[in-house]
Write a protein that binds this DNA or RNA. Structure first.
Lengths: 209, 209
DNA sequence: GCAAACTTTGACGATGGCGTCAAAAATGAA
DNA sequence: TTCATTTTTGACGCCATCGTCAAAGTTTGC
């Protein structure tokens, strides 16, 4: 039952580390430091798992990144979809931007946005990584199109839903960059509100309840 | 007159390299590789100037970056201002986005946007660097506010000039990220046109001549 | 109970980065 | 002419990273 250790303190045979916990830590390190600036040693230190064990379990840094990025992307898209699922369009879009802004300003120092950091990281230009980011943004755009196509939104937009969705997704990427530069969440929210006003400037603005 | 070489091939006494040419090369390397991923050795190799000479002339990597970034920012803001200086607002904004898109898609592979790469580079988080980026974006925003405040624009905007300027600058940053991910300049231009339509959706759209 | 498969560990050599330094030589001012 | 200044060069020591590997031990299946 109880694991024994050999003369070097080695326990072996089955995986010794809690995978969920370890992957969570690893996501955190990538998120804060960025893909390119993170070494396998950084991950080993942060998790308490030896470098060799990580190589053994996950092949290499790229595979490990893709593994944790998938979890990150799933959670992000799901939460964004939840935020968008509001009866009032303006409210839905505000919640959407609030979610993205809160996500990137969390942590000390603020961790920023993993997908954007990775997208602009010259050391993360492998095709599988870029494909993963594309996949996430495509899903995000899809969720946005769905929301903007609902009856309550359609008549109020200054451009068609598909165009609007692309603008909004692009805008969230810009917001991420501005966060890095100005470190001012309130400023980001204000800019997001301006964006929403532009989008909904078209027609019949309902009274705010 | 003619420089002589010592037994090691050394020429010394005055600066041996063409500073303009060297700084141009260095800007290019930073632009393509990003600040964090660029080593002093990379710069030495790219310019043909020895590592020690670069240290001697420019102190360290950060100072060198700030030096070439200043030139880059000056040129970028000036060219953006030129693009904005069109009689028709829509045309001005289209030219503005065309300029930024052309700037980032130039080169093979496309070099992207230096300020955005740097803003999201975790290894470029020193305050002087962040201040330099802020300075450039502030100037860009200023030029945009100026253009949007002209009589021909004021009446057509769906939000006030200062708000619109901030949205548009943020949008250019987002465009940069989308370029990295999708590598499709035409897509970027289409998104920019949608953005402009949203902004100008307010009132009296003049006939296109 | 035995053998095969798996995990952990520490070490290996190669590579490359960093910032510094002294030697060598050319320049320009006194 | 002389001498202080400047520039270039190659080498220095230190440290981190990389991917791999064999040894050791545990677990599982037979």
């Amino acid at each position: 039952m109880a694991s024994k250790m050999n003369y070097r303190g080695v326990m072996a045979g089955r995986r010794q580390f809690d995978e969920q916990h370890t992957l969570g830590r690893i996501l955190d390190v990538f998120w804060h430091q960025g893909y390119g600036a993170t070494s396998m040693q950084d991950l080993a230190t942060a998790t308490g798992v030896q470098r060799g064990s990580l190589y053994n379990a996950y092949q290499d840094k790229e595979s490990l990144f893709l593994r944790v990025f998938a979890d990150y992307a799933d959670a992000f898209v799901a939460d964004a979809g939840t935020a968008l699922d509001q009866p009032d369009v303006r409210r839905a879009l505000e919640d959407f931007f609030d979610f993205t802004i809160n996500s990137m300003t969390r942590g000390t120092p603020a961790r920023g946005c993993l997908s954007t950091k990775t997208a602009t990281d010259t050391q993360a230009d492998a095709e599988p990584i870029r494909a993963a980011i594309r996949g996430m943004l495509d899903r995000l755009e899809g969720a946005m199109i769905e929301r903007l196509s609902r009856p309550d939104a359609a008549g109020r937009l200054t451009v068609p839903p598909a165009e609007a969705a692309r603008v909004l997704v692009t805008m969230t990427r810009g917001t991420v960059v501005m966060e890095r530069v100005y470190q001012d969440p309130e400023r980001l929210r204000a800019t997001a509100r301006s964006m929403i006003t532009m989008l909904l400037a078209g027609h019949r603005e309902p009274a705010v309840t």
